[in-house]
Structures are given as structure tokens and as C-alpha cells.
């Protein structure tokens, strides 16, 4: 087995940001921008006695995905929880603006965001918050320009806080069983509202509220994939070939209608199992325990019901 082949069979969850990028893109096609040798590191972590990383936990660059030119950004969820800091955030902002301005000699036809983040890096909270806002604005500009912006979520840190909002701004979201999207993390809700509102130590509960299976079934994600780099790659190739809907009134009006309908349908639910029972799924309590094969079979039987674009 070649190095790349073994890379693709590997678990997305276990892989580093660099391994995900290498396995996701066509073999050997990745070219990094502002790489680790440039040592663009956080200017703030030292005052907290925290070690820095040569890439500040974000890898950005270009490559080919099934022959299509793409720009890609990947967060390393194990470094500082994949958080948005001044440098790590600005690297993503720069990548998106470069795509928007078609600055490169061969501009990209799609942008991939490999999110793996707890949200804003609190040690540099103000810079991180602004970076999230700048990323959201830049994604809107890319959508205005008609480019697909695809979020891939299946890492340990999930896509929380500003990362959850960014994931939802993209034209498509690919998620695995391990992926989670949310705004407030379970610990934050428990701290502020009490353990009876959200017991953050109840892992099964956390996944039922924020996890990939819940997100795909409620229409909050577009593709559900196995925890394999190859599966994320196949989904990204399929989505990069689709023309996203125009960034226009009709599209956002349709989103409004979908989001209102989701609230009407599920607004009284306190747990995903209630939501699934309401959706007519047999044995909703079993959904989290289904094998991947069984869950994917369940999904394909319901493909018409997704409310995302």
C-alpha cells in the first residue's frame, strides 16, 4: 500500500491536520502558503507560558481535488483546541480573500475548510472573535462570487463557538459520526445554566444534541460520511462539482423558510430521540448505537427529507 493510500484509509478523527490535507487532495498536489518554515507564530501565547506552534495550528494552501483547483485550510484540533487566534485566524482570512480576489495565477474553483475547533482562543479572544467575523464576511463574499465553500467536520474538537457558525455559513457541510457542531459548548452551558440543563459529562447526551447523526437527520449537514479520509474526499469531490445556489434573496428566503419549519417541527424537543420519534424513525433510542452501515442505510431511505440546500 502506498503512503497516500494508507493515508486515505486512515481515520479522519485520528489524523493530524496535515495528514487530512495530504489524504484529501490529489496525491502530491498540495502547496502550502505561509508554511511552518516562515514561523508565523502566535505573539500572545508566551505571556501565558504556553508553547507556540510553527503554523499556529492552521495549515493553508492550494491543491487539486479530483482534478479541480481548490484552496484549503485545516485546523489542528490538538494544538490549543484548534482555536481561532490572531495568526491562525488571519491565515484563514488571507486564504479566503486570495480566493475571492482571484489573485492566484490559477484561481480556485472551490474552497475547503477542515474545521476542528473549540472556537475563539480565549488567550487572544478579541483577535479571535474578529477573525471569526472576518471569515464569515469573506465566506459571504465567496458565495456572492459563486464559489462552493465546503466545511468538513469530523475531528476531536468538533466545530464549536465561532467555528460552528462558520460551518453553517458554508455552501455545504460534510460531517461524520464523531463530528459535532454547536455554538455554546456543553461545559459552558452546564457552567452557566446548571447540570440539569446540560450534563457535559454525559457523552452520549452530548453527541445526541450536537453530533453528526443528529445534524444530518435534522438537515443541518449535507453529507454524512464514515470516519475515513477517503470518505471525506469522495463527499468533497461530489460537492465541489455542484454549483451552489446564488447568494441572493431567494436563496436566503428559502433558508429562512427551512429554519422556521425546523423550529416548528422540532422546537419543543429536549433530546434528539424525541426529534427522531417525531420524524417517524422506528426505535429512535437505537439510532446512536446503529452500526455505520445501518445508519447510512437509514439515511438513504430518507434522502428527500433534508432541509438544507
Amino acid at each position: 500500500m502506498s503512503a497516500v493510500a494508507s493515508c486515505r484509509a486512515a481515520s479522519w478523527l485520528e489524523a493530524s491536520a496535515r495528514a487530512r490535507v495530504a489524504g484529501l487532495l490529489d496525491q502530491g498536489s498540495f502547496v502550502e502558503f505561509l508554511g511552518p518554515e516562515q514561523r508565523a507564530m502566535s505573539p500572545h501565547l508566551r505571556q501565558f507560558d504556553l508553547p507556540r506552534a510553527f503554523d499556529d495550528g492552521v495549515v493553508v494552501g492550494r491543491g487539486l481535488l479530483g482534478g479541480v483547483r481548490v484552496f484549503v485550510a485545516a485546523q489542528e484540533g490538538r494544538f490549543m483546541g484548534g482555536t481561532f487566534g490572531e495568526v491562525s485566524g488571519a491565515k484563514i482570512v488571507g486564504l479566503l480573500r486570495a480566493a475571492r480576489d482571484r489573485a492566484a495565477p490559477s484561481p480556485p474553483d472551490a474552497v475547503l475548510l477542515l474545521l476542528d475547533t473549540g472556537g475563539v482562543r480565549l488567550q487572544e479572544a478579541n483577535a479571535g472573535e474578529l477573525a471569526v467575523s472576518e471569515i464569515i464576511r469573506a465566506i459571504a463574499e465567496l458565495r456572492h462570487a459563486g464559489l462552493p465553500v465546503i466545511a468538513l467536520v469530523g475531528g476531536r474538537a468538533g466545530a464549536f463557538g465561532g467555528g460552528g457558525i462558520i460551518a453553517a455559513c458554508c455552501t455545504a457541510l460534510v460531517i461524520s459520526q464523531h463530528g459535532r457542531t454547536s455554538v455554546s459548548g456543553p461545559e459552558v452551558i452546564e457552567t452557566n445554566k446548571g447540570v440539569e440543563e446540560f450534563d457535559s459529562k454525559d457523552r452520549a447526551l452530548v453527541w445526541r444534541i450536537t453530533g453528526g447523526r443528529t445534524r444530518i437527520l435534522s438537515g443541518a449537514a449535507d453529507r454524512y460520511v464514515r470516519d475515513e479520509i477517503a470518505a471525506f474526499r469522495d463527499a468533497a469531490i461530489a460537492l465541489a462539482g455542484l454549483t451552489p445556489p446564488p447568494f441572493a434573496c431567494e436563496t436566503l428566503r428559502a433558508a429562512q423558510t427551512r429554519l422556521v419549519a425546523r423550529r416548528e417541527r422540532n422546537g419543543a424537543c429536549r433530546d434528539a430521540t424525541e426529534l427522531w420519534a417525531g420524524d417517524g424513525i422506528d426505535e429512535p433510542d437505537q439510532v446512536p448505537d446503529l452500526t455505520e452501515d445501518a445508519f447510512i442505510a437509514l439515511l438513504s431511505a430518507r434522502s428527500a427529507q433534508h432541509d438544507r440546500r
Partner: peptide, 18 residues
């Protein structure tokens, strides 16, 4: 010319070789 391995995390390290 260069290679990087590992990750900066508790009990772990990154090594940039140039």
C-alpha cells in the same frame, strides 16, 4: 529541504527539520 512532524500538545511536540 524541509519536513515537519508531530503536534504541540500536552506530552507531545513538533519537530521542524530544515
Amino acid at each position: 529541504r524541509q519536513a515537519i512532524v508531530g503536534v504541540v500538545a500536552s506530552g507531545n511536540l513538533e519537530v521542524l527539520a530544515e
